[in-house]
Design a protein around this nucleic acid. Structure first.
Lengths: 153, 153
DNA sequence: CGACGTGTGTAAACCTGTTGACTCACACTG
DNA sequence: CAGTGTGAGTCAACAGGTTTACACACGTCG
């Protein structure tokens, strides 16, 4: 347990990811990265690689390398509409959408249950309020001059 | 802005890291990973590779590979005390300790200022309380059965 | 003593991401 | 119609992690 909030946040995220990875691996046979790719695509589909890369927080090249395998395994489709330059439109297949739906709901339910656990009875966590506060904080950090470091921009 | 707390947390951590990396790079000429390695070592030095790896949340092998360069550049020392098996004790040099001290203070000050920014006047963030809550949450997740995924254990 | 078991660091192969140079398709300009 | 610019995707080289297997320094126990 650290007394530095920034350390605590890192630790918490690592713990959430580890938990999610364990659940996903055990019940759906996919890893956390795999799920995250599909889940974030679900929020913006159909979209091209560049935008998805931005949403994922990785580079175009990283997305470009993962796409063929995901298409081959039937999670997503990649179409090149005529007359759109080299742009490639990515979408979820039924299988991909189903995974995002069911596994996402499962993880969200788990997480909500944790936040409502008796351990927090004495000092309950107000999730919506916390979410709003943290989003404000994100926006504020992004507005800081030194923060010119988002990948791919 | 996502309405899912877990997404927001990921985004926040990414933003904090990007900010820290920009500051560290600009003012101290080191990257965030570099600083993190030294800062976490500072909290447990002197210690051996296995324990440091655990604290960093990476494997022994990863630490083992980084140590030679850090020693060569004068950030840390690696000693093999007689009679302790193959254990190697890692410690910060003066240079390393100074970086952790000054850069750490700088980042912490920046972060504290952000949390006190006017943007939060309407709904202030109580950092110590939040830290406690999140640490409780971490402990709770770790106690969940599915969470058998901490690296190196 | 000698054989094992255990903890610790290291080496090799691999996976995944980044960077920087490139190709390609299109739009604009002369 | 070139010629040039620009945005999108891809390729090659690299960086930093993980895994698996191993070498080594100790204990312990026969």
């Amino acid at each position: 347990m650290s007394d530095r909030l920034s350390f605590t946040l890192h630790e918490l995220v690592a713990e959430i990811d580890a938990y999610a990875d364990a659940v996903l691996q055990a019940e759906y046979g996919v890893g956390y990265n795999h799920f995250q790719f599909l889940a974030i695509l679900a929020g913006v589909e159909p979209t091209d690689m560049t935008r998805l890369a931005f949403c994922l927080g990785v580079t175009k090249a990283a997305v470009s390398k993962r796409v063929p395998a995901l298409v081959a395994d039937g999670w997503i489709t990649a179409d090149s509409p005529a007359g759109s330059g080299r742009s490639i439109l990515l979408s979820l297949t039924e299988k991909g959408a189903a995974l995002v739906q069911t596994a996402g709901a499962r993880l969200e339910r788990d997480f909500a249950e944790m936040l409502a656990a008796p351990a927090f009875a004495a000092d309950p966590i107000d999730a919506p309020r916390l979410n709003t506060q943290l989003n404000t904080l994100i926006a504020f950090i992004q507005s800081q001059p030194a923060s010119a470091a988002a990948p791919q921009e």
